[in-house]
Design a protein around this nucleic acid. Structure first.
Length: 424
RNA sequence: GGAGAGAUGGCAGAGUGGUCGAAUGCGGCGGUCUCGAAAACCGUUGUUCGCUUUCCGGCGGACCGGGGGUUCGAAUCCCCCUCUCUCCGCCA
């Protein structure tokens, strides 16, 4: 959520920046400014009436104490109109605040000044790429065939138990999955992140705090009976650890990592995008979350990108890093880098990580602040996060790229975790 | 799931209708003392919105788990919700 102050003081700038995200915000912004003025007016009036009422009430107390019953009764008459006025004004005030809030939460975050304009993923900019050279071998099996051949991932079985998009990992496939999770967590811990295991369901307040609600309501699984949402990413529970928290500057940077399964309804997806492991309703992911001082958040973002890069390098995957254009960025992000790895049998790039700076957009919703050492005022902190990494597409690429006639080779860094060098 | 108790400032803990944003203790910050520190003593110490102010600040509103109600007036009384604790039941 953008702050009112930002919109009030930089109206044209806000509209201009939101246009980069293909969002025509003029109407909303103008409505917000209008409602803000109205809100102030109502607050002023109601404050004055309340102050008057408080004075009279105090006087009544004193009169009663000193036994002046008559005058007390007279004073009570005065409050009748005052009460009616304050009731009306506070009602108008809260109605206006509600309207204001409703529009405010529909505005996406402003893109950072370096974000390129663009409509879709086609306009994203390749920042750099690396990893082993892509082979042009035509005889490679896609991972869904490999999964069946070695009996390591069973899509049909998951379909039977739950439905499409809920695979069952079996034997070496399961161990491989668990190894990746452990590897990613151990790497994160080495890089200074503190591991947490958060709840996999969250309440609506948490969903709102990180920006999933109300914007992406239909993308999350919802437990109506208890009013909980299944988490679409560990970002939600982990960032919400800091909801309503005031940090000290010396606490920065706060670095957390968590493994969680992620649940996404993925309504509207179809075709080759959802084949095999490409898009699932339940998948595993290790996430990194950082709470940072605003003045360091962009340096921190680069650090996180470098960290995620070190992971794909260690796994020997061909990768590229994209800076997302305005049109492809999420609602909450100010700047996002995507990581894609090349899947050699599918001959396409698969997104395996997304690293973002949300600046104060989530913090404003979360009321996540820090005490400024100089001014002693509470200021909004910056939040950042990234996938490090999401498993299924990493698994897809590893299976496809490492297939040999003898079986699938396990990357060296994972062998200590799997205990085997080959899936055969 | 049943019965009872409770939710107050960073923490502990008073406050059951009237200058209570809230005693007191601890902690934090500033100072005196000291070569320095500790102790002692003195002072200070919540958030948020609005108005005002060249800075310092000043004035007003709201906030004692959340929401609603009674009353001229609510931390205090009533109702609903959430959560915590104790006992019982169940249970990985």
């Amino acid at each position: 959520m953008l702050t009112l102050k930002l919109i009030r003081d930089n109206k044209e700038f806000v509209i201009e920046r939101l246009a980069i995200k293909n969002n025509n915000a003029r109407t909303s912004v103008e409505k917000i400014i209008e409602l803000d003025k109205l809100r102030k007016s109502f607050q002023n009036q109601s404050d004055n009436k309340l102050a008057e009422l408080n004075k009279v009430s105090q006087k009544i107390g004193q009169l009663i104490k000193s036994g002046q019953k008559e005058q007390a009764e007279q004073a009570k008459q005065v409050t009748i109109n005052l009460k009616e006025d304050t009731r009306r004004l506070t009602q108008q005030l809260s109605d206006t605040e509600k309207q204001l809030q409703e529009i405010l939460i529909t505005l996406p975050n402003l893109p950072h000044s370096s974000v390129p304009s663009g409509k879709s993923a086609k306009d994203n900019i390749i920042v750099r790429s690396g990893g082993p050279k892509i082979t042009e071998n035509e005889n490679m099996l896609p991972h869904w065939d490999l999964a069946k051949k070695y009996d390591i991932i069973d899509f049909d079985l998951g379909n039977k138990i739950t439905g499409t998009g809920f695979p069952v990992y079996k034997g070496k496939g399961a161990k491989f999955q668990r190894s990746l999770i452990s590897f990613f967590l151990d790497e994160a811990i080495k890089a200074g992140f503190r591991e947490v295991i958060p709840p996999f369901m969250v309440n609506p307040d948490s969903g709102f705090g990180t920006g999933q609600l109300p914007d992406k309501d239909g993308q999350m699984y919802y437990i109506t009976f208890d009013n909980f949402y299944l988490i679409p990413t560990a970002e939600v529970p982990v960032t919400n650890i800091f909801r309503d928290v005031v940090l000290n500057e010396s606490d920065f940077p706060v670095k957390y990592t968590a493994y969680t399964p992620c649940f996404r309804r993925e309504a509207g997806s179809y075709g080759k995008d959802v084949r095999g492991l490409n898009r699932l309703h339940q998948f595993d992911k290790v996430e990194i979350v950082v709470i940072e001082n605003p003045k360091n958040s962009y340096t921190q973002l680069e650090t996180m990108v470098n960290y995620v890069e070190s992971l794909v390098v260690k796994l020997c995957l061909p990768y590229r890093i994209l800076k997302l254009c305005g049109g492809d960025m999420s609602f909450t992000s100010a700047l996002t880098y995507d990581f894609e790895v090349y899947s050699e049998a599918q001959k396409r790039w698969l997104e395996v990580s997304s690293v973002s700076n949300f600046e104060s957009f989530q913090a404003n919703r979360l009321k996540l602040r820090y005490k400024d050492e100089v001014t002693k005022k509470n200021q909004l902190a910056h939040t950042l996060n990234g996938s490090a990494l999401a498993l299924p597409r990493v698994v897809a690429a590893l299976l496809e790229n490492n297939q040999t006639v003898n079986g699938i080779k396990i990357p060296d860094v994972l062998v200590p975790y799997t205990g085997f060098k080959l899936i055969d």
